[in-house]
Amino acid sequence: MADDIQIIKEAAVTEAMQERSNATFASRAVAATKIYGSGETSVRALDSVTVSFPSGEFTAIMGPSGSGKSTLLHCLAGLDDLTSGQVFIGDVEVTALDEKGKTRLRRDQVGFIFQSYNLVPTLTAEENIRLPLDLARRDADEEWLAKIIDIVGLGDRLTHRPTELSGGQQQRVAAARAMASKPDIVFADEPTGNLDSRRGSEILEFMRTAVKDFGQTIVMVTHDPISASYSDRVVLLADGQIVDEIRQPTVERVLDKLKSLEG
């Protein structure tokens, strides 16, 4: 029985990976620079950042406040424009796309989990999960959806509206939505910020499962070392530049690095 499940899992991974683009890097930034304002009052949020995120990896981006981590995430996702430099999702150069192209990219190739307010209040949980697919008027892979819903544990809440769900349940719906269209990459901006530790770890578990078992690529911005410990790699930012990275992070190592950054 366990073997059967293992075989099914592997088949799913292969299938998922084949449907994604063949690039080894799900997302890349090359000399990404973002400057706010001009002249004397200009702020360099990102200073010629070059970083790559391999497919199938769970990466956390961390840094003190003002380090530019959220800005980097937004630019990687095509939500914000760079002053100079390039951003890629797979083979597609995001920075060369027009507004329509970026929108379509977000819809079909990218998944999002925000810290809060992820859901459309008038739609049910299920409708929220299907949102990107409905926007694209694409048929969902029903098997895949069923799987995600099952893993995320929302089976009995599908017809509920966000106001009828707890914070943790809402984030789980958001997470399910992010994966629903089998995107190339999922960006998460402080996904556990508003949750207590138990709900938070549920989400993080789900995210790790998605990466390990289904080959999903996830890039997460967080300030929380516990959340970071779920990732495969932590990228550290300070003053708009990448200053360090940690492979196979533990909570202690992350805390140490963070402290040295602050100091």
Binding site: L79, T103, R107, D108, F112, L119, R177
Partner: peptide
């Protein structure tokens, strides 16, 4: 905010 979310998730203009 809701509009922002929809646009972020891929709703075209």
């Amino acid at each position: 905010r809701e509009l922002g979310l929809l646009r972020a998730v891929g709703m075209a203009r």
